[in-house]
Simulated assay, not measured.
Amino acid sequence: MKLLPTQSKRILLTLFWLWTLGIWIGSLMPMSGPSIENGDKIQHFIGYGVLALLAQLIWHQPRKIWLGATLMGVAVEFAQALTPYRSFDTHDMLANSIGAVFGLLLACAWLKRQ
């Protein structure tokens, strides 16, 4: 496993924190417009997949990253339950967790090839 140069790591860290912030903001804002059936599950899968992929490229700790992403997904769902326009959904948590696994697998495969 190759360590990233400092400049690349800074860029990835910036992307990781911006992506994390984007997940929180997007998850707590009112939903807008019509959506496709279960389209939000795809968004959850992709959102947490990218989150885990970025984290793995930075920290190389898949178990901790998966746990952190999964716990963040649970926290987001509880926060949504506190808003008048969003709701708590265990299926969203599952999509988050599966997306994180997929992102970790992609990152691990990519790192292995380097």
Results as ranks from 00 to 15, higher is better:
1 M>L: 06
2 K>S: 09
4 L>N: 03
8 S>R: 13
10 R>A: 10
10 R>C: 04
11 I>L: 14
12 L>E: 08
12 L>D: 07
18 L>Q: 00
18 L>P: 02
19 W>K: 12
21 L>T: 13
24 W>L: 13
29 M>C: 05
34 P>T: 12
34 P>Q: 14
35 S>V: 13
36 I>M: 14
37 E>S: 12
39 G>W: 11
41 K>T: 06
42 I>V: 15
43 Q>V: 12
43 Q>S: 13
50 V>P: 00
50 V>L: 14
51 L>C: 03
54 L>W: 03
56 Q>N: 12
56 Q>W: 06
59 W>S: 03
59 W>A: 09
60 H>N: 13
60 H>C: 08
66 W>N: 00
66 W>E: 00
68 G>P: 09
68 G>F: 15
69 A>D: 07
69 A>R: 07
70 T>H: 04
73 G>L: 08
75 A>D: 07
75 A>T: 14
75 A>Q: 11
77 E>T: 05
79 A>E: 02
81 A>G: 14
83 T>C: 10
85 Y>G: 05
86 R>Q: 08
92 D>I: 09
93 M>E: 10
94 L>I: 14
98 I>V: 15
100 A>Q: 02
101 V>H: 03
102 F>R: 06
102 F>M: 11
103 G>F: 05
103 G>V: 03
107 A>Q: 08
108 C>F: 13
109 A>N: 11
